[in-house]
């Protein structure tokens, strides 16, 4: 009974999310006041959603590609002394407000997509790096010792013992990063990179709440969707 319900849940969650997203969008589009109606048309909603997805995907994947290997490297015995230094540097990226990061790098990289991706990437690094490092360190030395005793080489210990054991913790970091990322990506609108922030910021400056609701609802659903997707990936692996 419970197992059945559980299996049903895995199908139901995305369906419910999709239904909620579509119905919220349809409701706001159909009931838009004249000024908001200029933005709230279906092709535009899809375009903005696509921009948002691309921002989140590119920055998150680049962050995973950078932070996971880095986390593994600094967990090696040879690099343990520098680990706090690297963590500290990445930490700084996180402590600067995201809007300030956008403003700072705007002068370097110009406006638009690249700058937004860079800022989001910088923001996603820390949770992933920290969790990767923590995951690797959480493995008891006796386990590594035993593996070595069985004659396993270092790279096999890494791929067969350490990574699988640290995997859930790494995934938790990735999930945190991606969920934060979906929300932070709404700020990209300030520097002309589009995304759901276009709706939210326009809604604020014109006091059109339906624009704010649409942007916020879609962004929240996107975050839940990504979280669910990653949870599945984790189970599947």
């Amino acid at each position: 009974m419970w197992r059945k319900l559980n299996r049903l849940r895995t199908v139901l969650v995305p369906v419910i999310l999709l239904a909620a997203g579509v119905s919220a969008t349809v409701y706001f589009v159909e009931n838009a006041t004249p000024m908001a109606a200029r933005l709230l048309v279906y092709p535009n909603v899809l375009r903005v959603l696509g921009q948002h997805l691309l921002l989140v995907l590119v920055s998150s994947l680049l962050a995973i590609a950078a932070a996971v290997p880095l986390g593994i490297i600094i967990s090696r015995p040879a690099f343990r002394p520098v680990a706090p230094v690297i963590e500290g540097i990445v930490n700084i990226g996180q402590t600067v407000p995201s809007l300030a990061v956008l403003a700072l790098f705007m002068t370097l990289f110009g406006l638009g997509f690249q700058t937004a991706v860079f800022a989001l990437w910088l923001y996603s690094l820390l949770p992933i790096l920290r969790n990767t490092y923590a995951g690797m360190k959480s493995i008891g030395p006796e386990i590594i010792e035993a593996a070595r005793g069985m004659g396993m080489k270092a790279h096999r210990i890494l791929s067969r013992i350490e990574l699988p054991l640290a995997f859930p913790i790494i995934m938790a970091g990735i999930r945190t990063a991606v969920v934060i990322n979906v929300g932070t990506a709404t700020l990209a609108s300030f520097i002309g990179a589009g995304g759901l922030g276009d709706f939210i910021v326009t809604g604020i400056s014109l006091r059109r709440t339906e624009l704010i609701y649409t942007g916020a609802a879609l962004s929240a659903l996107l975050a839940i969707f990504f979280d669910d997707l990653l949870a599945r990936l984790e189970k599947y692996v």
Partner: peptide, 29 residues
């Protein structure tokens, strides 16, 4: 475990592809 490595490699390839696509789109911007 092979599965895990496969997923990782897939993710990395995906990163590069998406970054390339994004780079074209964004770069053109």
């Amino acid at each position: 475990m092979g599965k895990f490595l496969r997923v990782m490699i897939f993710a990395l390839v995906a990163v590069l592809l998406v970054a390339l696509a994004g780079g074209c789109g964004g770069g053109a911007g």
